[in-house]
Design a protein around this nucleic acid. Structure first.
Lengths: 110, 110
DNA sequence: TCGAGATACCTTGACAGCCGAGGTATCTTG
DNA sequence: CAAGATACCTCGGCTGTCAAGGTATCTCGA
């Protein structure tokens, strides 16, 4: 991975929820979307992803159901809950704030 | 802290090195500068900060020396090394990349 | 003079998230 | 029927954060 995992640590939930705001999805697909959108530079490891799913489901942010697979093994789909939408919105706000502050702290030449 | 620590996890080193690129400094001061520049929304805890100093010194990115204090207790000043400058530059690049990718992953409305 | 408060540094142990490694099951295709 | 893609899951180690607690120095006011 070109970008160290710790750089996205703490953003994992935000990324997953943002995906589920678009549409229901499942682990394997979310992983590929992230990889595609980031041109391969972000890559959530499976263990990380499933840990996050479990965490988010326990927190009531997402719910899951077994769905049909077009091809391949069975899929566990995740859908976002109202609490998840709220969390997603909050996390997006936090990201924007983080971005501003980090820029202030790192970009010293104006 | 309004911004969870995990959000800046992985950026701590970059923040510290960026500070030391400006001038030699010491723990207590760096902490206050970060707090000030972020309007109190980022706040590295002391334990975190000193852990980071130790890590960066062992990695050869910074060096330290005891300096005079104008008022108060003795201070351990840190200065950035050539390796630290390199690391700082690299981390800044990674931050810019992270920012772009995160925006792609989170900001869905164009 | 002496105690409070600011300055300043440091360590320990608990905790949480990331991930390497390994495992299971299903479906398609040759 | 074997190989490879799809798809899910767990365990254990590692690393960074932080609450809590500790030490020492200096200033200033009562």
């Amino acid at each position: 991975m070109s970008i160290a995992g710790d750089l996205i640590r703490g953003h994992t939930d935000a990324i997953i929820l943002a995906r589920l705001m678009q549409a229901d999805s499942y682990g394997y697909e979310i992983n590929k979307i992230i990889s595609t959108l980031s041109a391969g530079r972000f890559e959530l490891k499976e263990a990380t992803l499933y840990t996050a799913f479990k965490r988010l489901e326990e927190a009531g942010c997402i719910a899951s159901y077994w769905g049909d697979s077009g091809a391949g093994a069975r899929r566990r789909y995740y859908t976002i809950t109202p609490a998840g939408r709220e969390a997603s919105h909050r996390l997006l706000g936090e990201w924007r704030e983080t971005k501003q502050i980090m820029d202030k702290l790192l970009e010293t030449e104006e």
